[in-house]
């Protein structure tokens, strides 16, 4: 049996992905809907977790953003992201996760461009927004569509 972490979460998420895909007519729109779902969830997470206490009041530098991402990872997934890259591109931070929780055991074919784990983009975007950081987050690659790992790009505005 494939080993899955948090089957309850995956069950819910798969349900939402199915629902969103059945209601949208193209991939960009579906990605956006998943991010919107993340925005909603982000509020809940921000209210109900220790993110507030464990992060600085004002997040200003990219290093602060990277730290915040670590805290979010710790609280949501109890682990560290595999990489938080601040150097390659100015003005953006890239998060890599080789074992992303959202797309465990998901195999998509012929759905290039679909960010299965876009929900996390929305969650992070909202948390950053509450911390006063204007950023656009989107998923660049997902294991669900065949990539080796999931990556997100946090573009700081």
């Amino acid at each position: 049996m494939p080993k899955i972490e948090n089957p309850l979460l995956l069950g819910f998420y798969a349900y939402f992905v199915d629902k969103i895909l059945s209601e949208t007519s193209n991939i960009d729109e579906a990605n956006q809907k998943l991010r919107d779902l993340g925005h909603e969830i982000g509020k809940q997470i921000y209210l109900n977790t220790e993110i507030v206490e464990k992060t600085k009041d004002s997040v200003t530098t990219r290093e602060d953003v990277a730290k915040l991402i670590d805290v979010v990872y710790k609280i949501l997934y109890d682990k560290k992201p595999d990489d938080v890259d601040m150097k390659t591109a100015r003005g953006s931070v890239r998060i890599s996760d080789k074992e992303c929780v959202w797309c465990q055991e998901v195999n998509l074919e012929g759905m290039r461009g679909f960010g299965y784990c876009e929900i996390f983009s929305g969650i992070l975007e909202t948390i950053l927004e509450f911390k006063g950081v204007e950023a656009k987050v989107f998923q660049e690659m997902s294991r669900a569509t065949g990539a080796e790992m999931c990556t997100w790009n946090v573009r700081l505005g």
């Binding site: 049996m1 494939p2 998509l108 012929g110």
Partner: peptide, 12 residues
């Protein structure tokens, strides 16, 4: 048969 090589493939 999940444990012996059955995958679910999502596609449109």
């Amino acid at each position: 048969y999940r444990k012996s090589g059955l995958k679910m493939i999502g596609r449109t």
